[in-house]
Amino acid sequence: MKWKKFRLKTLATAEDIVAEALSEAGIEGVEIEDHVPLSENELKQMFVDIPLPAGQDDGTAYLDFYLDEDEDAGGILASVRERLENLRQYTQIGACTIEEGETEDADWINNWKKYFHKFKVDDILIIPSWEKMEDCDSAGMVLHIDPGTAFGTGMHETTQLCMRQLKKVVTPQTQLLDVGTGSGILSIVALKLGACHAVGTDLDPCAVDAVKDNLSANGVPESSMDMVLGNLIDDPKTQALVGYEKYDVVTANILADVLVALAPHIVPAMRHGGILIMSGILDEREKDVEKAARKAGLQIAEVTHQNEWVCVTAKKD
């Protein structure tokens, strides 16, 4: 599908109020680009998989928004401009010029590729499809990952922590549950380590195609992994599809608040003696996740760290 892309130039100090004006005009979402330095606290709370581009802060901000070809772009833009003129009466919003272009779904999917290059996690080489293997790229395992719009390249510390734990616990008998599977990277690592089967859950339908493509890219049979779309926390249908007392290893690389809510709903899916690997945890939330795991009936087996991120591995008796 082709989309009309609009790029509005404003001031960084006014980006929030301008974004609200766009929302009131019927625009459902905007991409905000500025170069305002992030605070230390904001950096700690970020959970991004690909490094963000930096730049010099010149006080400007750009708001990108998209309208499909069936929408009344003229009417919506007229409403936007009227609201911006009203804002200008009582606050500085900059030029608020709007440039128009055209884009396609494929453009959104491919733009991030310029930031993702091959790299190693210990003896595992992770390489996207658009880069070539070199003679110096020897590794114990080669992992071909193209996440597309799904989360999971392996670049983030939280994913790497999970990968290292999987290397410790996966056996040829392992049945794996990967909650919030995204690109499927953790499931594929487990399968390449010898696990016999994996089940991935996710809320995002994009994960289904990403997993299928990444399984194929790694020569892993599609039958080795099943996908379930749904929320394991509050959806009985999803819980039933995932099943009960089936899994030797469960991975959940999400965020601390979700892990706290998720823990009691994961435990029924685990076999006795099963291992739960939880990551996406800032060090200041480590104790909260450990407490939730214990409350759900698990024993803490190991806690590992990488920079300010934590991975809690727990066991079901």
Rank of each mutant, 00 (worst) to 15 (best):
Y66M: 03
E69F: 00
L63E: 07
A78W: 02
Y66S: 00
E71V: 01
S79D: 13
L84C: 11
D64I: 07
E71S: 13
E85Y: 04
Y90R: 11
L63H: 04
L77Y: 00
T91W: 05
A78M: 07
Q89W: 00
T91L: 05
A61P: 13
A78P: 00
Y62P: 01
D64Y: 15
Q89I: 00
L84H: 07
I76R: 05
E71R: 10
R81H: 05
R88V: 06
G94A: 13
Q89K: 09
D72C: 10
R83T: 10
G75Q: 10
R83V: 06
Y62A: 00
L87F: 04
T91Q: 10
S79F: 00
D70S: 14
L87N: 12
N86A: 13
L67F: 05
C96Y: 05
L77T: 10
E69A: 12
N86Y: 02
D70I: 00
Y66I: 00
L77H: 04
G94C: 09
D72R: 09
I76D: 09
Q92P: 02
T97H: 08
E85N: 10
S79Q: 11
I93S: 01
G94S: 10
L77K: 02
I76L: 15
Y66N: 04
E85K: 13
C96G: 11
R88I: 04
R88H: 09
A78Y: 05
C96M: 11
Y62Q: 06
R81W: 05
G74I: 00
I76Y: 03
S79W: 00
G75V: 04
A95S: 11
D72F: 05
A95M: 07
T91N: 01
E82T: 15
R88P: 10
D72W: 02
F65S: 03
D64W: 14
Y62R: 14
G75Y: 03
R83D: 09
G94E: 12
Y62G: 00
S79H: 01
L87M: 11
R83K: 15
S79V: 13
E82A: 15
L87A: 03
G75S: 02
Y62C: 00
R88F: 06
Y90V: 04
N86T: 13
Y90D: 11
E85H: 13
E82L: 14
D68P: 02
R83M: 05
F65V: 02
Q92V: 03
G75A: 09
V80L: 08
L84W: 05
E85D: 15
F65P: 03
G75N: 08
L67P: 06
G74W: 00
L67D: 08
L87I: 04
F65K: 12
Q92H: 07
G74E: 14
D64F: 15
G75D: 05
I76Q: 05
Y90H: 14
L67K: 03
F65W: 07
L63D: 04
G94Q: 09
I76S: 12
A95I: 11
I76T: 15
I76F: 08
Y62H: 13
A95Y: 03
N86F: 01
L77S: 05
I93F: 08
E69V: 10
A61N: 13
A61G: 12
L87H: 07
Q92D: 14
V80M: 08
Q89N: 03
L87K: 06
E85M: 08
D64C: 11
L87T: 04
